[in-house]
Nucleic acid binder design. Structure first.
Length: 560
RNA sequence: UGGGGCGUGGUGCAAUGGCAGCACAGCGGACUUUGGAUCCGUUGAUCUUGGUUCGAAUCCAGGCGCCCCAGCCA
């Protein structure tokens, strides 16, 4: 069970409820509406709900809040399940609010019989006018005092499909003067002649969120119904329904602040626009904060879980620095990623004193953080590729430790080489760098103990595999794309959020790169095979760069 | 101008009347066959005014600021 002390106010409340006997056990639920893909913000709720159940030895259900057939689709109920499992959680029971439509209807009839609900013929516009404003009380609908018999008859005929959409609603009879607008006779049912993805054409009236959620919680025996802050105003209504129904079990709703992330948008409305307007390639575009996007990008689920645990749970609205998420991604990837060498922007190196046609297979470590990952052999030959950026004809400053003419550098797991000359085309572009190597330094060790500060990666030219590599940067150029009221958030989309590199050179071992395996291309970052890959034509997504302290040093030096 | 909620370093979270702490970010250093990882050090905060108290981030009163609510969305 649980020995650690509570980490936040929700767990404190749960422990108090357990101690007082209000509840004997903990049961939570994750209640998505199947009208979009899950994103990192949902992950916070998933980790909270499933994590809380686990911590207290309880259960957690997955319940789809499918009360609005005009917006919901099976595509989403499937993707949501896939994403939750990928994140690392399994629900105790799979439920749907639509499972409870019969019970909800019966309870509504009961409220009508008790004079606590009525059928209203007011139009949507009239209902709004009658509701009053934030500072003025509302007025009773002229239909508020219909007889029980008439209400029963009308409600049944609503159910039977005798009335068109929008012509009538069932409302709870509470208090049109309440300072809490949710209590001003909230709508319980609306008429919607729409086909539901589960119940088909069985219903043409559908329950509203407020009427469905609390009762669904009660039916499932949920002890703690955790939701976001905007539902705090709904809690009195949540409790009113429970108190006015013959329900023994009363769940407790607790609200917490939703996740916000810098340089990211997380509202469904905005996410759907990014997809529908073609700013990204789909819900699983690696730049999207959706779980599907993060998965495709190569973010490990453990990184997301750790991040969600690290940010805490509180009631203050807050925006987490993207850097914290990136920290957890790197921390997990550093632990699990297989190291390989890949040259993204290749330039050829010819080692003039290395025998033509010779191939040496040198040993390289797969993961210095995990000895069990073992080693592999990589081929070394006379012609190699290195990063164009790892060479300067003239050493720019004394902190520059990479290759330059007259200076020595270590080829990772290879030899020390020294640049002697360059071959250029007429435009002055470097075609080849001619180097000499020291045969005594095989494996990268200097028997004479001389120091070489720089170590660069490389691949053997005749063995290299060509690949496409996609580099991603943050999708937005400003920390809060919603911040300026007169500008649409799409105006802040980073035009350089995607860079496609072709002709990248990979070490031959990567021919067998497996989908789902996380790689670190040494010195370049973490990479993950994209499903766009073709046999012999791999496509890699850069999940994230390595931490780059050099760029800071270079910046302070005023160099590129 | 009604009701509900929230204000602690740059960011996020702790401290539950008793030395304001942790993480990320920043800065400095050590080490390094990844300018990675690791290790060490360091800058920096209680919205405000008053009150209670030996003692207040915490309790009380007022003020200020921010968020949510007027869907037949969730």
């Amino acid at each position: 069970m649980n020995n650690e002390k509570p980490t936040h106010f929700i767990h404190e409340m749960i422990e108090a409820d357990l101690k007082s006997g209000r509840y004997q056990s903990v049961r939570t639920r994750f209640p998505p509406e199947p009208n979009g893909y899950l994103h990192i913000g949902h992950a916070k709720s998933i980790v909270l709900n499933f994590g809380t159940a686990k911590k207290y030895g309880g259960q957690c259900n997955l319940r789809f809040d499918d009360t609005n057939p005009t917006k919901e689709e099976v595509e989403y109920v499937e993707s949501i399940q896939e994403d939750i499992r990928w994140l690392g959680y399994e629900w105790d029971e799979l439920r749907f609010a639509s499972d409870y439509f019969d019970q909800l209807y019966a309870w509504a009839v009961q409220l009508i019989k008790e004079g606590k609900a009525y059928v209203d013929d007011l139009s949507q516009e009239e209902i709004r006018q009658y509701r009053g404003t934030l500072t003025e009380p509302g007025r009773n609908s002229p239909y508020r005092d219909r007889s029980v018999e008439e209400n029963l008859d009308l409600f049944e005929r609503m159910k039977n499909g005798e009335f068109p959409d929008g012509s009538k609603v069932l409302r709870a009879k509470i208090d049109m003067a309440s300072p809490n607008l949710n209590l001003r006779d909230p709508v319980m049912y609306r008429i919607l002649h729409a086909r539901h993805h589960r119940t088909g054409d069985q219903w043409c009236i559908y329950p509203m969120y407020d009427w469905a959620h609390g009762q669904s919680d009660a039916i499932e025996g949920i002890s703690h119904s955790l939701c976001t802050l905007e539902f705090e105003n709904h809690r009195p209504l949540y409790e009113w329904f429970l108190d006015n129904l013959p329900i023994a079990h009363k769940p407790r709703q607790i609200e917490f602040a939703r996740l916000n992330l810098t340089y990211t948008v997380l509202s469904k409305r905005r996410l759907i626009r990014l997809v529908k307007e073609g700013h990204v390639r789909g819900w699983d575009d690696p730049r999207m904060p959706t779980l599907a996007g993060l998965r495709r990008r190569g973010v490990p689920p453990a990184a997301i879980r750790n991040f969600c645990e690290a940010i805490g749970v509180a009631k203050a609205n807050s925006t987490i620095d993207l850097a914290l998420f990136e920290y957890h991604i790197r921390q997990e990837l550093n632990r699990i990623a297989e190291r390989r060498m890949a040259v993204l922007d290749p330039v050829k190196v010819v080692i003039t004193n290395y025998p033509e046609g010779q191939v040496e297979w040198l040993e390289a470590i797969n993961n210095p953080e995990d000895e069990s990952a073992g080693t592999r052999k990589i081929p070394f030959t006379r012609e190699l590729y290195i990063e164009r950026d790892d060479f300067r004809e003239v050493r720019p400053n004394k902190k520059y430790h990479r290759l330059s003419i007259g200076h020595e550098v270590r080829l990772r797991y290879g030899y020390f080489i020294k640049a002697e000359s360059v071959v250029k085309d007429e435009a002055g572009n470097i075609l080849e760098i001619h180097c000499t190597y020291d045969p005594e330094t095989r494996g990268g060790y200097a028997p004479d103990g001389r120091k070489v500060r720089g170590t660069i990666h490389w691949v053997s030219a005749p063995h290299a595999i060509d690949a496409e590599v996609r580099l991603y940067d943050r999708l937005f150029t400003v920390p809060d794309p919603r911040s300026e009221a007169d500008k649409d958030f799409t105006e802040f989309i980073n035009p350089n959020s995607l860079t496609v590199l072709t002709g990248c050179k990979l070490e031959p071992d990567l021919a067998a790169a497996a989908a789902g395996t996380h790689y670190q291309f040494e010195r370049k970052g973490y990479f993950f095979l994209d499903p766009d890959s073709q046999p012999g034509r791999p496509v890699f997504n850069r999940t994230i760069t390595l931490r780059d302290t050099w760029s800071k040093i270079a910046k302070s030096l005023g160099q590129k």
